[in-house]
Design a protein around this nucleic acid. Sequence first.
DNA 1: AGGCATAGTGTTATATTATAACGTATCGAA
DNA 2: TTCGATACGTTATAATATAACACTATGCCT
Lengths: 165, 165
Amino acid sequence: MPGKPRPPEIAFRKHDHRRCQRQLLSEATQLCAERKLRLTARRRQVLEALLASHQPMGAYDILAELNQSAGEEHVAPPIVYRALEFLMSEGLIHRIESRNAFISCVQPGHRCGAQFLICRDCEQVAELEGNDDGLLAEADNLGFAVDHSVVEITGVCAECQKHAG
Amino acid sequence: MPGKPRPPEIAFRKHDHRRCQRQLLSEATQLCAERKLRLTARRRQVLEALLASHQPMGAYDILAELNQSAGEEHVAPPIVYRALEFLMSEGLIHRIESRNAFISCVQPGHRCGAQFLICRDCEQVAELEGNDDGLLAEADNLGFAVDHSVVEITGVCAECQKHAG
DNA sequence: AGGCATAGTGTTATATTATAACGTATCGAA
DNA sequence: TTCGATACGTTATAATATAACACTATGCCT
């Protein structure tokens, strides 16, 4: 149903974040169990870093967090990138291409692409639910077999427009 | 008119490329004149590099081309990035975020975002005309003031599906 | 024309993001 | 318990992008 309005997810909405975080982590755990995949300590660490905010984080931000909480141990980039790759392949996180950043997914497990509204004032990112049906249908009409879609809309969110006057 | 089908542009179509190239360059020249902007030698060089193919090129690919054709002179990255920035701000080229690459625009001057179909087999990129109206309307409904939209759909084009199947 | 402000260019250095390559450890199945 | 596959750790380096500052060309005003 292409025309049906969908609610923006999470970031531009108030919610019980602690609870939300636990919820998503447990969904991820369950999903990996179902798929017979290993949500190892490393992968969980990286996912948790992303869940802690609903905001996008650069790979090196995540790296820094791991190294913070890690005491002596030194974590190097490939470790983070590998975990990110796994989490993306399972639809637990997304990459925000226009920011070179990563963000936890609000509908874990749907491996299809997502759509994002990115506020350039407050830097918050909202993930919209569902697909961009119109466009996907169009690609289909052209005989193009869609793999993955990236939709990132930058602008100013309602809240920041108010504050800006 | 959201539902109206639009033709894919250029890359997946046969066309007289030499002519197309001249045409786009002349449109760019005219557009800069109208806007009282300077399409300097450097900027033109970079635009020409992108027009020479309708394919995406990395900034360093362009840099390499300039250095090829430049004889002794050594061109450094900032020169290319500055020209790219100018060309993007005037809607003469686009950035393909998911590839860290740049591509000439087929509708020069429209500073709104474009949509791309990217074939992962043949690496060709087709720019669709018009806007992704449905999605932009949706953002608007949410009170989000859109600046710029990035739409990049990866998959396999009709041609490559034939050859593979 | 001369002088000035601005925009554009050139150059060096460096930041940021991402991956290659290779060895070691761990896990789960036979 | 051994084997194959998957994940991890480490070092080095590739690829992409920008900061900072000096110099040059251009357009504009008088």
